[in-house]
């Protein structure tokens, strides 16, 4: 089976992963591949990732930085939205509390 045949058998979202990681996985030796699969199946993803990087070509390493930057960007967007929402909640809460305090002291 080649990568295209593998992609054809997978759902569309998983096919993207084959494009991203497939070429490097094909470069692994049988021993590396066995070790990599063992790490994946027991959930030791950091070790699996290290092994993947060891097998990666120079161009794949650069592409991996682009992927990493995209992930950081997505995480930062979510983080910024969450902080903006928290600040809005904080402002509303402060307004309510000030109103309550003013009401209690008789203004």
């Amino acid at each position: 089976m080649n990568l295209q045949e593998l992609k054809d058998k997978l759902p569309a979202e998983a096919a993207g992963l084959v494009d991203l990681y497939g070429p490097t996985i094909l470069l692994m030796t049988a021993e590396q591949l066995r070790e990599w699969l063992n790490y994946v199946f027991v959930g030791r993803y950091t070790e699996a990732y290290a092994l993947y990087l060891k097998a990666a070509s120079a161009d794949t390493l650069l592409a991996e930085w682009d992927t990493t930057h995209a992930e950081w960007k997505a995480a930062n967007d979510v983080n910024a939205d969450k902080i903006a929402m928290s600040q809005k909640i904080g402002q509303v809460f402060a307004q309510v509390m000030i109103g309550m305090i003013l009401a209690v002291v008789g203004f």
Binding site: A58, T68, H69, W72, K73, A75
Partner: peptide, 27 residues
């Protein structure tokens, strides 16, 4: 290649600072 790597790593170092500051990252 080395300059490309420096450029791409720089973007991620700036991403980390943006995460700390609660800012969005540049594309």
């Amino acid at each position: 290649w080395l300059n490309a790597a420096v450029l791409k790593e720089a973007k991620v170092l700036i991403d980390v600072a943006n995460a700390r500051a609660g800012k969005r990252s540049e594309p």
